[in-house]
Amino acid sequence: MLILECPYCGVKACETELSPGYEAHLKRFGPGSTDAEFEDYMFARKNPKGVHFERWRHTYGCGKWFLAARDTNTLEVFGTYPAQSSAPPEDLQAKIKAKRPDWKGYK
């Protein structure tokens, strides 16, 4: 059972209390972008086997969206952070790097 701590209300919520929202930090493209950019934004996904940053919603709690860093190959959770972040926080990245030395870093 996956347990994520909501960065807003501090509740350690089990996955039945949460809704998954897939890849985080997608850069939005709209009118005026190229077809390739729009396709990438809409459909192309990193889908890594290992460290992943994703969106979750504390649906049956405060109702807010937040972001989480997780290993898709072991289900280990590295940490959570607010949705108003354009990239994973430095200290979280350092923590992941310490645990996963061959992780290529956030791109």
Binding site: L2, S19, P20, Y22, N47, P48, K49, H52, E54, R70, T72, N73, T74, L75
Partner: peptide, 8 residues
């Protein structure tokens, strides 16, 4: 509902 490679 989430990315997972563990076959679990």
């Amino acid at each position: 509902g989430f990315n997972n490679y563990t076959q679990r």
